[in-house]
Computed example of a mutant assay.
Amino acid sequence: MEALETVDMAELILHSHELSTMINHSREVSEYIHAKQRMEADEEAQRLLALFERKKAQYEDVQRFGKYHPDYDQISKEVRELKRKIEMLDSVQAFKRAEDNLDRLLYQVGRTIADAVSETIKVPSNNPFLEAKSSGCGSGGSCGCSIKKRS
């Protein structure tokens, strides 16, 4: 029986630091940081986000009683409208796009590492469509799932 060559844990950690440095110097991280700074400098975005936090606290308060609370419908409506206003701001949209792009990069790196070990390893993502591609038991058995090789 042939012995497998193993890598020292310290060497793995060193390479992981190199990888994290490469990721930190990527276009995706640069765009994320720029978009976040732009959103943080957007006075309207900050005003609406602060208002949203206050409304969200009110919503959580009435949520305890649900639809039976006298202000439930009004506060629910205000939270939805405020959320929509925030989502319509250019700086917030740019930040969300940059965040999604960075999440995709991190998922792809994690997926590449996981697939190098086994295709059945789950890799979490903030995108449910990416997770759906990689979830399941991997056996393709009675649960109806199957894991397909990613390109």
Results as ranks from 00 to 15, higher is better:
25 H>V: 06
29 V>W: 01
29 V>G: 08
29 V>S: 12
33 I>T: 10
37 Q>C: 15
38 R>D: 10
41 A>K: 10
43 E>R: 11
48 L>E: 00
49 L>Q: 06
49 L>P: 00
50 A>S: 14
51 L>F: 08
52 F>W: 07
53 E>V: 13
53 E>Y: 09
55 K>R: 12
58 Q>D: 13
58 Q>C: 11
58 Q>K: 15
59 Y>F: 15
59 Y>V: 12
60 E>I: 15
61 D>I: 11
61 D>L: 15
62 V>S: 01
64 R>G: 15
64 R>D: 13
65 F>T: 12
69 H>V: 10
70 P>V: 08
70 P>L: 09
75 I>Q: 01
75 I>H: 02
78 E>F: 02
80 R>V: 10
82 L>A: 08
84 R>N: 15
87 E>H: 08
87 E>C: 07
88 M>I: 08
92 V>D: 00
93 Q>I: 03
93 Q>G: 00
96 K>P: 01
99 E>I: 04
100 D>K: 08
102 L>N: 04
103 D>F: 01
104 R>V: 07
108 Q>K: 06
109 V>H: 00
112 T>Y: 06
112 T>D: 05
112 T>H: 03
113 I>E: 02
115 D>N: 14
116 A>R: 10
118 S>Y: 04
119 E>H: 05
120 T>Q: 09
121 I>M: 03
121 I>P: 11
122 K>D: 07
124 P>T: 13
125 S>A: 09
126 N>P: 04
128 P>G: 04
130 L>I: 07
130 L>Y: 04
130 L>R: 04
130 L>V: 09
132 A>S: 13
135 S>K: 05
136 G>P: 04
140 G>K: 01
142 S>A: 14
143 C>G: 15
145 C>F: 10
147 I>P: 02
147 I>R: 01
148 K>N: 08
